[in-house]
């Protein structure tokens, strides 16, 4: 979202309270949604639940094309549409709901850094495994991604998306990696998160922040999604405190709706 629109949104947002009719859009849950999209969507849902803001989840086959930034998920609140966790956090902050108010400057810097770590490594690894591992792409990703469309559009769109993701991987230097190196990166990232969490209930002691929501979204999705290989989930399972962290957040915030 652009900065000008950002400023406009925060002005508008401050004026109105959070409506009951807020909606979160994501692709079809059973047939279409991919690992990385599911993780991002779950992160936003967890964040909104931590803030105590009600939101209704709606699955749409064309969610990707409805989103203003082309990224999933996005929320529709009042007459505004905001996509991705970062801007959504800004948006709720403008409405007076924030989880990171209590942090000092250094903690806030660390929180932002760890959020970028998750985006930089976990999200990229998910994208890599989905689209650049040939087995996963052929068996899971392309069929699911193109499920709402009929042939030949389905094939064209799926390969177009795959090509785009592969180019992005080349641009950030992941193009030359093999699967083992990607798993190694995931382990490294989990190791760092596990170190940071230690024995605390949340990353910054007793209060959850947007970092907790983001980490939960990704780890929980990795743990509960079936891929062609279980290696990715196994890498996460090696860290006991992260597992109990996921369980704790699931119980606290998702008790009523077990998926």
């Amino acid at each position: 979202m652009s900065l000008a629109a950002d400023a406009f949104v925060s002005q508008m947002a401050a004026a109105e309270p959070w409506p009951e009719s807020a909606t979160l859009y994501q692709p079809l849950k059973e047939d279409q949604i991919l690992l990385s999209e599911c993780a991002s969507s779950l992160a936003v849902q967890a964040y909104l639940r931590m803030c105590g803001l009600p939101v209704q989840v709606v699955c749409k086959a064309n969610a990707e094309y409805m989103s203003p930034s082309g990224k999933i998920p996005f929320i529709h609140v009042g007459n505004q549409v905001v996509s991705e966790l970062g801007p959504i956090v800004q948006f709720t902050k403008a409405k007076g709901h924030s989880l990171s108010e209590g942090l000092d400057d250094i903690q806030r810097a660390e929180m932002k850094a760890y959020m970028e770590l998750v985006n930089n490594m976990l999200l990229t690894a998910e994208l890599y495994i989905q689209w650049c591992d040939d087995g996963t792409a052929a068996e899971i990703t392309r069929p699911r991604y193109s499920s709402p469309y009929s042939w030949p559009l389905s094939t064209i769109l799926a390969y177009q998306k795959q090509w785009e993701v592969r180019r992005k991987m080349n641009a950030i230097g992941w193009g030359g990696k093999n699967l083992e190196q990607v798993y190694e990166d995931v382990s490294q990232c989990c190791q760092a998160l596990s170190q940071r969490l230690g024995t605390q209930p949340f990353f910054f002691n007793k209060q959850p922040t947007e970092l907790d929501a983001l980490v939960f979204g990704h780890l929980f999705t990795i743990l509960t999604t079936r891929l062609t290989s279980t290696e990715l989930a196994e890498r996460v399972r090696g860290y006991g405190n992260l597992l109990s962290f996921c369980r704790r957040i699931e119980q606290t915030y998702f008790e009523d709706r077990t998926s």
């Binding site: 660390e110 850094a113 760890y114 970028e116 930089n120 490594m121 990232c189």
Partner: peptide, 12 residues
């Protein structure tokens, strides 16, 4: 813990 912080800030 410092190594973890280092990784996070490099990502930032």
């Amino acid at each position: 813990k410092e190594a973890a912080d280092s990784l996070a800030f490099i990502a930032l």
